[in-house]
Simulated scan of single mutants.
Amino acid sequence: MKRTIIYGVLPLLAVACGHDGDFDATGTFEAAEVVVSAEAAGRILRFDAEEGDVLEAGRQVGAIDTVQLYLQKLQLERTAASVRSGRPDISKQVAALREQIAKQQTERRRVENLLKDGAATAKQLDDIDAQLKVLNGQLDAQLSTLKNNTASIDENTSSIELQIAQVEDRLSKCRIASPIAGTVLAKYSEAGELASVGRPLMKVADLGRIYLRAYFTSDQLSGLELGRPVTVTADFGGGERRDYPGHITWIASESEFTPKTIQTRDTRANLVYAVKIAVENDGRLKIGLYGEVKLDE
């Protein structure tokens, strides 16, 4: 019985040792995953995304109840309109004073001409100048008051408009949309459920931009550089394997202990460096799929 076990293990060791030289590192495929969470609280009225759906970035796929926010916006718009209605019409309110000043100026020119001919006195001209001074002072004071009132009303209106903008922002956050173009990997909520701020609704990943996260030992670092081409072999199971061209896009600045599920060329090494390798996905590569890396010469 013992001899049978030994004979059964030896072929496996031979295969493992022979296969060990065919790659420089191994890892699993991953993609940029985004968990889309609710940005508003309320009942989910619609949620059309399903697992496996391909979504466009920013396209609405659901909505959270917005009735109260919409009513709040209407109320603020009515308030803003009421405040604006109290804005004074400066030109109309000072029209009477301007007309009096114009008449006094006409009278002054008449008296000034009469004074030249000796038909009027200097006192008459001084009286008109005094009246003009009073009228101009009244005009300046009224203009100042009206401008201050207008500025105050404009400030109040601006404050209300900012509140309206805040409500509109909260309304926009009631839309459920993916910030990236990608595939729905998981759906965590359904229409009719109550959403709270921060509650996960779905997970989306861009499977068109997929990476292999592989681990290299410290003695391999000298041969790694950003942009270096490599050959990635994806293992689909059942003996089906396919090679893909790739290039290094990221190299970890710090080492870490070898993950238990990862093989390296030197399995005795305790510390390894993570490396991301970009691979063009032909539609067959999936997240979590096992892959091997061979550094191109």
Results as ranks from 00 to 15, higher is better:
Leu224Ser: 12
Glu190Phe: 04
Asp206Met: 11
Gly198Cys: 07
Pro245Val: 00
Val184Leu: 06
Gly223Asn: 11
Ala214Asp: 01
Gln220Pro: 09
Leu221Asp: 04
Gly246Asp: 02
Leu207Arg: 04
Gly223Thr: 12
His247Lys: 15
Gln163Ala: 08
Leu226Gly: 09
Asp243Pro: 02
Thr249Val: 08
Ser218Phe: 14
Arg228Ile: 00
Ala186Leu: 10
Ser222Gly: 11
Tyr211Pro: 06
Phe216Met: 05
Thr249Phe: 02
Asp169Met: 09
Gln166Cys: 07
Gly192Thr: 03
Ala165Trp: 09
Ile210Ser: 06
Ala205Val: 00
Leu207Phe: 01
Leu226Thr: 08
Val232His: 04
Asp206Gln: 13
Gly208Arg: 15
Leu212Trp: 01
Val230Glu: 01
Arg175Asp: 13
Asp243Gly: 03
Ile251Gly: 12
Glu225Asn: 13
Arg241Val: 08
Ala205Ile: 00
Gly182Val: 00
Gln220Lys: 09
Asp206Glu: 13
Val184Gln: 03
Glu193Pro: 11
Arg213His: 08
Ile160Phe: 06
Ser189Leu: 11
Arg228Phe: 01
Arg213Trp: 01
Lys203Thr: 15
Arg241Ile: 06
Ile248Asn: 08
Leu194Thr: 14
Arg209Met: 09
Trp250Gly: 08
Asp219Met: 06
Met202Ser: 07
Gln166Tyr: 09
Thr249Ser: 14
Glu168Val: 11
Ile164Gln: 14
Ala186Arg: 03
